[in-house]
Design a protein around this nucleic acid. Structure first.
Length: 940
RNA sequence: GGGGCGGUGGCGAAAUGGUAGACGCAGCAGACUUAAAAUCUGCCGGACGUCAGUCCGUGUGGGUUCGAGUCCCACCCGCCCUACCA
């Protein structure tokens, strides 16, 4: 019977043998350097996806590579076992979440084992095990003790049909409907537990510089934290009301604040609203409350808002400015109130134009551009001739049936001055012309008025309204100008620039303006420098059953009381009822809810909310060190959730791998957790994971995201049955760079299957080729060169997670070996070295076939305890190289030369090449460059 | 609007500033076979040429350099994330 490669036979055999031998058992060995290699833990959905293979098998290969390099590698696995799908199964099919979850975990363990990964199953942790969530609850109590957990009344997404809150990711689509029943979600205010992650905002930002994470993730976290620097400024209202504090990043535009806007939810709204505006304000506030943030956040939406009837005083110029409410101001960012600078903020500009609010430019245009428009009928004859004489360019414009106008672009102050003088000379009484951009003036026949304040705006418009009936449609000077489309590109800008119309600060250059104004505000007691973050506190309350119960108690006498550490865990009751309404089973479980107050012993109620599952995954990499530590024992606040010696050995994580989708959730939460743990004196380090790698996503054959509805899902179990795990592993690594992902190709995998067959054949048979007579020294040297070059290149690529090129190099080595076998080299020492090297390098990628073949060659010793091969630089060295000869950078000849040929010889050989000579005919050689001993460029 | 990633043969992709397309898939031709599959051998960016070879070619346009897929500047296209963030 032919000795064929049958992965279905050897793979289960070795998987069982490895377990029997304890090959991947975890041992804290202080004599060996540790390496904690972690892959994001899976959710036990019940069916392993090819995406799991793509995330996990290259990760396993990298971990195995480290192990072969001599590190003591810890490569644990577990399950993120709480979450909504289990509860849905309970509601829909009457299966208890615990039963459903454990059955899924059982199935997934089997599927995961078929990958042949080197997981430390002896340290497996399952987050829904009471001995696990006992510690999750313990962390909650510790955070509470530190003042980092607090309860707050906050609006959350709520599905009115399912009667429960939803996580952000369970709200789907632009219309924000419920993932389960399709009902549009609403906002509902509930009493919720939150963690003060914002206390660590700056540290979370600073820490990014200390970790070796992809720039992409760091950027996403930086944006998520959203630090912005500016100032807080107080605007007073009346003596009996507190001032409104605003945050601004542009204190240099303060003189241009011509109105204020409060978020509809702002607490001051109720207190400042004037009686005559009360009805309008109430209606607007109610309407805003019905809309959720996404609807409010639609950028293309028309601005809406209502005047409160109240006024504030601009602290820098004393201007009395109206206070509006509008939903474009968010209560959740900054102070929930803004000073509106319509001349230099696009949103404020739109709002001011829509509601006729005054707009005062206070920052000079950095481009210095100015424009003017003059109606022909407003100037005396000879104006055009005067312009021509003064060499001022102009063009004719027609404005909406109002006749012919002159449009005058103006480039410099001198030109503007000359032009203004001409205007004053030629303007008829009662007429005017505008200058906008570099200057903001309306030039009347008796002199110009400058738009430098709300009062000036009113004065200008009074004259315009009086002068020309048509102007009455424009409430403000800027609105009048905005009607002239030719002006539009110079009316608004948000650049930093020289301050104008700003009292003593007029003329302050842009690069100093912000700092100087901020310092001055502080001096005057009107404001101070401030830093604002976009990051919000982490809401962890979930109104669901299948999560770790929040270990808190509400006592009518003592208030909020923490469950004593020694009473943990607060167990989920097994007999909960899962109602089709989706209401939290804990809320209606009297046995769970009713409890004696730990302080006074009186009747009290348990918190019935459970914790966000991100809480479980924030510390799982610590749990792996000693899963279910102190099982069955009473806990105290002074405990450590893992064996301290084991933790000191393994922590922190050296290399983490996983998908990019967790960039701003899990990866921020776990960093926050670690910093809090450091402050609890549990962790002697600041960051949980020193290096991070994000793999890409595997797509369906149609290059689309895999989904059941598309029918493009690749089922790994079928592939294992057909090709075996090794072929799938190697193919997934070969497909392209790991970080890019890419489409599955059912043909492409065949090439990898052929490769495995070839490797098999190289070891088990001679391919029908007789061993030749003593191989020539040259043949041996050529074979060894290929082997040692392969080791050299594959080592570097493994280090860099470039598995695709590692597989390509091993395929190349396979071809070399086939050639060597045909040449009769098998049986030589060089052949043995080559085969062993190939198997060793293949071991991390395809652990089963390499184990089978290795043990056939070296019975009794696992390939996975061998050292990664090292290369011999001498053996890898080329003795003949191809000298490339270029003329003016174009390749004109290739010459085989001995390696290490000196420059002079290379130059001589190059010039002697017939084709090169042809290209040098009738040319003068200007320069000859010899690069790297392998390339000559002749410049003529 | 902001940020990120990417654009190289028919396809997945290689390429320390130095021979563009390694490796694989698909395709074509041949060998073996009654035949097919499997396997083996060869070809495989485009155009011109009998050969030698020549010209063009890494999204577009510039630049730096003896030499650019690679570095710089400006743009175009695709995907992903984020967004009235004051």
């Amino acid at each position: 019977m032919p000795d064929k490669y049958i992965p279905q036979e050897i793979e289960p055999k070795w998987q069982a043998q490895w377990v029997a031998d304890g090959l991947y058992a975890t041992v804290e060995d202080p004599d060996k350097e540790k390496y904690y290699f972690l892959t994001m833990l899976p959710y036990p959905s019940g069916d392993l996806h090819i995406g799991h293979w793509y995330a996990m098998t290259p990760s396993d290969a990298a971990a195995r590579f480290r192990r072969m390099q001599g590190y003591n590698v810890f490569f644990p696995i577990g399950f993120d076992a709480f979450g909504l799908p289990a509860e849905n199964a309970a509601i829909q099919r009457g299966i208890h979440p615990y039963t459903w979850t454990l059955a899924n975990i059982d199935k997934m363990r089997r599927q995961l084992r078929s990958m042949g990964a080197m997981w430390a199953w002896d340290r497996e942790a399952v987050s829904c095990d009471p001995e696990y969530y006992k510690w999750t609850q313990w962390f909650f109590l510790k955070l509470y003790d530190m003042g980092l957990a607090y309860k707050e009344f906050a609006p959350v997404d709520w599905c009115p049909r399912c009667n429960t809150t939803l996580a952000r990711e369970q709200v789907w689509g632009d219309d924000r409907h419920c993932e389960r029943c399709g009902t549009p979600v609403i906002k509902k205010a509930l009493n919720q537990w939150k963690f003060r992650i914002t206390n660590y905002a700056q540290e979370l930002l600073d820490g990014l510089e200390t970790i070796d994470w992809p720039e992409r993730v760091k950027t996403m976290q930086t944006n998520w934290i959203g630090r912005s620097e500016g100032a807080e400024v107080q605007f007073s209202i009346t003596d009996d009301l507190p001032p409104i504090t605003v945050f601004t990043t542009r204190p240099d535009t303060l003189w241009g604040a011509t109105f204020m806007v409060l978020a509809p939810e702002h607490p001051l709204v109720a207190r400042i609203t004037a009686p005559e505006q009360q009805a309008a304000v109430d209606a607007y506030v109610q309407q805003a409350a019905r809309m959720d943030e996404i609807q409010r956040g639609a950028t293309d939406k028309e601005k809406t808002g209502v005047f409160t009837g109240a006024y504030a005083i601009n602290p820098v110029n004393g201007a009395r400015i109206p206070i509006w409410i509008a939903d474009y101001v968010l209560m959740t960012y900054g102070t929930g109130a803004i000073m509106a600078v319509p001349a230099h903020d696009e949103r404020d500009f739109d709002f001011a134009l829509k509601f006729g609010l005054s707009i005062t430019p206070v920052i000079d245009r950095p481009d210095g551009r100015a424009k003017s428009v003059v109606w022909e009928g407003s100037v005396s004859d000879g104006f055009e001739a005067a312009l021509q004489a003064a060499r001022i360019a102009y063009k004719y414009l027609t404005i909406e049936g109002r006749g012919r106008f002159l449009g005058v672009p103006l480039e410099s102050d001198a030109e503007i001055d000359a032009y203004t003088a001409l205007l004053l000379e030629h303007l008829k009484a009662g007429h005017w012309a505008d200058i906008v951009g570099r200057r903001w003036q309306v030039v009347f026949h008796d002199g110009p008025l400058t738009l430098d304040s709300i009062a000036a705006d009113a004065a200008i418009m009074a004259r315009c309204h009086a002068g020309y009936e048509l102007m009455r449609q424009f409430p403000t000077t800027m609105a009048m100008w905005q009607a002239v489309s030719w002006y539009r590109d110079v009316l608004f800008h948000h650049e930093v620039g020289t301050m104008i119309n700003s009292g003593v600060f007029s003329g302050a250059p842009g690069d100093r303006a912000k700092a100087e104004v901020t310092a001055w505000l502080a001096e005057q007691g009107k404001g101070k420098a401030a830093v604002n973050y976009r990051l919000r506190d982490w809401l962890i309350s979930r109104q669901r059953y299948w999560g770790a119960p929040i270990p808190m108690i509400d006592c009518p006498n003592c208030g909020t009381v923490a469950v004593p550490y020694g009473d943990l865990p607060v167990l989920l009751p097994e007999d909960a009822q899962f109602l089709p309404t989706g209401e939290s089973p804990l809320r209606f479980h009297e046995g769970f809810r009713r409890v004696k107050c730990p302080k006074c012993g009186g009747e009290a109620e348990r918190e019935t909310d459970t914790m966000d599952t991100f809480m479980c995954s924030s510390w799982y990499h610590y749990a792996y060190v000693t899963p279910y530590h102190k099982a069955g024992q009473r806990l105290s606040p002074n405990d450590t959730p893992w064996d301290e010696a084991a933790g000191a050995y393994w922590l922190p994580v050296d290399q983490y791998t996983g998908g990019i989708e967790h960039a701003t959730m899990h990866l921020i939460y776990t960093r926050f957790f670690t910093k809090a743990m450091r402050d609890m004196e549990l962790a002697p380090f600041d960051e949980p994971m020193l290096r991070l790698f994000n793999q890409g996503m595997i797509l369906g054959e149609d290059n689309e995201k895999m989904s059941k509805s598309r029918g493009n899902v690749v089922a790994p179990d079928d592939l294992v049955a057909r090709y075996g795990a090794d072929v799938i592993r190697a193919y997934l690594m070969f497909i392209g760079p790991w970080e890019l992902g890419g489409p599955w190709n059912s043909k492409g995998i065949e090439g990898v299957a052929r490769f495995m067959n070839d490797v098999w054949s190289l070891v088990v048979d001679d391919g029908g080729h007789a061993a030749g007579p003593a191989a020539s020294e040259k043949e041996v040297r050529t074979l060894r060169r290929a082997v040692h070059q392969s080791i050299r290149d594959a080592s570097a690529d493994m280090e860099a997670f470039k598995f695709n090129t590692v597989v390509a190099k091993l395929m190349g080595l396979r071809s070399t070996l086939k050639g060597a076998r045909a040449a009769g080299l098998h049986g030589t020492a060089a052949w043995d070295e080559a085969l062993d090297s190939l198997l060793l390098m293949l071991a991390p990628i395809a652990p089963h076939i390499s184990e089978e073949l290795w043990q056939r060659r070296h019975p009794g010793a696992s390939v996975h305890v061998q050292r990664w091969p090292s290369w011999d630089a001498d053996a890898a060295k080329e003795d003949v190289i191809t000298l490339v000869v270029q003329v003016n950078g174009k390749v004109r000849g290739k010459i085989e030369v001995p390696a290490g040929v000196d420059e002079a010889a290379a130059r001589e050989l190059a010039l002697a090449d017939p084709n090169v000579q042809r290209h040098l005919e009738n040319k003068v050689i200007r320069k000859v460059i010899v690069a790297g001993g392998a390339l000559v460029n002749i410049v003529v």
